[in-house]
Amino acid sequence: MRFDDIVINKTIEKLLKGQDYREEVINAINLEFLDFALDFFKQILEAKINDTNINLQWYKKHFINNSKIEPNEAAIFAGMNKKTISNIYGSATKEIVLNVANTNIDYLESLLETLGDNGENIGINIKISYKEISVELNLSESLLVINALATKKIALRGGAWSSIGKRVEKPLMLALCQQCRVEKDFIDDAIFKKNGELDFDREVDFKLYNFDKSKEYKVEVKLMGKGNPESADAVIARDTDIFIADTLSVQNKNQLKSLGIEYLELKNNQNCLEDFRVILEKLNIPTKYTKKDSNLT
């Protein structure tokens, strides 16, 4: 899931104020999901009106084996998502995704037939209307659509929480440095590639330097929840000097202290900028920050 600049900027603004940023992500997820749902219903309406196939053949034709549908979309319509397919099969090529989508839709169809044979007096019918045109889905069709919508929502949520951290890391650090007036000559925001010669990943998000550039400080940023064990692993593997996090548990903080790593917790912290300035001062990273600046934040 991709976030536009408005969401990114609002997220950074909330983080720097010590506020919870998750509302921005949830709103973006809901907006994209509702757009998908409405478009999906429109496609269903059009498919049902123009197709006389019985059972679920119309669904397979228009939503699984349709050359106009992207493979990752076909997987969603079949109740799977591309990432899950990749995790299971070690690949997510077009051929693999479409094969899995067809296999899964056949499996779901057999389950729905079994459900119908049980004779339960449960009635679920989705009715889709547009102006004076309407179609009604039977129990099997309705459950298939509900399953596809649920799959899409799960895929959006998983992708969103992973994506927001990656999108925010660099802009957040630049905003921190800008508001604390760190001099540009002592900032390195280049993309640091992984060193394939090493046995472990030393990729970092950001670098800062002391006044004579004799010391390089590697900065790691994580928008994680409290108690996330990934934090300690990341800072150890990447030889981090400064750790910026949304939330840190007591255990996280104790781990960082024992490693001699400076850290800044953002959530519920009304003094994020001042705390970051203290870290900069401690590490002799040059800034033009003054008391007058603190009164403006």
Score class of each variant (00 low, 15 high):
Lys153Tyr: 01
Thr247Phe: 05
Lys184Ile: 03
Gly90Ala: 02
Arg277Gly: 00
Thr114Pro: 01
Ala148Val: 14
Lys152His: 06
Val250Ala: 13
Ser258Cys: 00
Asn121Tyr: 09
Asp5Ile: 04
Val278Asp: 12
Lys152Asn: 14
Thr84Trp: 07
Ala47Tyr: 04
Ser294Ala: 04
Ala245Cys: 12
Leu174Asp: 10
Leu115Thr: 05
Asp293Glu: 10
Gln251Lys: 05
Asn254Pro: 00
Ile69Pro: 03
Glu220Thr: 00
Val97Glu: 05
Tyr21Asp: 06
Asp246Thr: 05
Gln255Ser: 06
Asp117Glu: 15
Phe243Asp: 02
Ala160Glu: 06
Ile88Met: 06
Ala74Ser: 15
Ile85Phe: 04
Glu95Cys: 09
Ile69Cys: 11
Phe192Ala: 07
Arg22Glu: 12
Leu172Ala: 10
Ala74Gln: 09
Phe3Glu: 03
Asp199Thr: 14
Leu112Ala: 03
Lys152Ile: 03
Ile54Gly: 12
Thr297Val: 00
Asn125Trp: 09
Ile64Asn: 06
Lys207Ile: 09
Ala155Phe: 01
Gln179Phe: 07
Val168Asp: 06
Gln270Thr: 14
Leu266Glu: 02
Tyr21Gln: 11
Asp51Arg: 12
Leu248Arg: 02
Asn102Val: 04
Lys222Ser: 03
Ala234Pro: 03
Leu111Asn: 02
Leu248Gln: 05
Asn53Val: 06
Leu266Ser: 02
Asp188His: 05
Lys267Ala: 02
Glu141Asn: 12
Phe276Glu: 08
Cys272Leu: 11
Glu109Gln: 15
Lys170Cys: 12
Ser294Thr: 02
Pro229Phe: 01
Asp199Val: 11
Lys267Gly: 02
Asn9Asp: 14
Asp212Thr: 00
Leu273Trp: 05
Ala160His: 02
Asn50Arg: 11
Asn269Val: 06
Glu216Lys: 00
Phe36Ser: 12
Lys10Trp: 01
Gly225Gln: 07
Val182Ile: 13
Ile64Met: 10
Asp275Val: 03
Glu120Ile: 11
Val204Cys: 10
Ala101Ser: 15
Ile44Pro: 08
Val25Ile: 03
Lys170Asp: 04
Glu141Thr: 01
Ala78Ile: 03
Phe33Asn: 11
Ser163Arg: 15
Leu172Tyr: 07
Arg157Thr: 04
Thr103Glu: 15
Asp199Asn: 13
Tyr59Glu: 13
Asn66Met: 11
Lys83Asp: 14
Ile124Trp: 12
Lys222Asn: 04
Arg202Tyr: 04
Gly227Gln: 07
Ile261Phe: 05
Ser86Cys: 10
Gly165Ile: 01
Tyr89Asp: 07
Lys14Cys: 10
Arg238Met: 05
Lys193Val: 11
Lys170Glu: 12
Gly79Cys: 14
Leu273Gly: 08
Asn210Asp: 15
Ile261Cys: 01
Gln251Tyr: 09
Thr114Glu: 10
Gln251Ile: 13
Pro171Thr: 10
